[in-house]
Design a protein around this nucleic acid. Structure first.
Lengths: 195, 195
DNA sequence: TAATAAGGCTAAAAGTTATTAGCTTTATTA
DNA sequence: TAATAAAGCTAATAACTTTTAGCCTTATTA
């Protein structure tokens, strides 16, 4: 990995943990294994590092939810739906990179309009749009009752977003949280699936 | 209002806007109308101001959701439920004090365990426990179908929490957001209310 | 191989920030 | 009214932070 990439990686880790203002360039440099002034061979300044990070958060969003490719084939049963949804959530919750981006965004969301907009996309648009399509498909294939897929996607995803953000701040409850999430998803199926 | 209270008020405003690390004691003092060293006649230091603010956020939570008194009488019809719920949300969303506490907590939630725990209580426990009781009561009075009140409260409240936090970062969309929320609540009633 | 560029370093400038010391004024109370 | 406490101020300290300047080594390339 190039030094430039390593700087971005360590900066994201530190920003996620202590916020932008709570992190010094010296700390970043130390984690990379260089001295602070050497950072300036790769970036114009601290703000420039942050902007590059925002770009990469944006790129990450695009590659995760930008196209509809990522849906794969539609779940074919209730159990299939619960299983694929839970594993998607477990992945999102535990993947270190995704977790750092989430923690970074949530702390810096008020810094500027671009960060605000990206945070909304990550929290409200991304997974929800995806599940809108999945649910819509499953309505057509007769597994879900007919209803507004957008509203159902919101009802499915919102509690998950809140629980995952609880897990970000209180990781000791991860297991209970996963149980709550599964209970919620099963209840969702009880209400909106046929039979 | 005492100088001490004014310091807390202005500190909260600034912390909500720029975060703890993004706010200087000089800025706080200026807004209060004194010089920075005078702050130290009222607080031991910057951290002490923050701790007092956390106490007041805690007290605010207690007075809002600590007792069951705040439910008032149960809604007696679907329209009544939608109306009272929407007005509670509008109040929570617009009240400047509540908004500042929300923005402060969301930015500082990772700073220490106490902040993490209070953030969870504000975001996940507070309104949800309240609606758990309301929904439970309305199940008994036959307005809602019989189901787990805790799960229903989560489904009702979670999307609202996410939309309100979007309104905090992008206030220009407040109106659309209120429309989305109302649509969601009406849909919730369609699904879980009798007739 | 010689020249050049990339990327590291030290030293230090320049600015900011939280905090303390000590003085003065205002308000409280004995 | 006199004494004391509270709360303000200026000046200064001390630490920290970001960034620049200039030098040296290593790698690339003509």
């Amino acid at each position: 990995m190039s030094t430039k990439d390593k700087i971005l990686e360590e900066a994201l880790t530190l920003f996620a943990e202590n916020g932008y203002d709570g992190t010094g360039v010296e700390q970043i440099a130390e984690k990379v294994g260089i001295k602070a002034p050497s950072l300036y061979k790769h970036f114009k300044g601290k703000e420039d590092i942050m902007n590059a990070l925002i770009d990469s958060a944006e790129a990450h969003y695009e590659s995760s939810f930008g196209s509809s490719e990522h849906i794969g084939k539609l779940p074919e049963s209730r159990d299939d739906f619960v299983r694929t949804t839970m594993s998607r959530i477990a992945f999102t919750m535990h993947d270190p990179m995704i977790r750092k981006i989430r923690k970074f965004l949530v702390q810096e969301q008020f810094r500027n309009d671009r960060l605000a907009e990206i945070t909304t996309r990550h929290q409200l648009v991304g997974i929800q749009k995806m599940y809108e399509k999945i649910i819509e498909g499953m309505m057509k294939s007769g597994l879900f009752i007919h209803d507004d897929p957008a509203l159902l996607a919101i009802e499915l995803v919102s509690p998950v977003v809140l629980w995952v953000s609880k897990a970000d701040r209180e990781p000791q409850y991860e297991q209970e949280i996963m149980e709550c999430i599964e209970k919620h998803i099963r209840h969702f199926c009880d209400v909106y699936m046929k039979e």
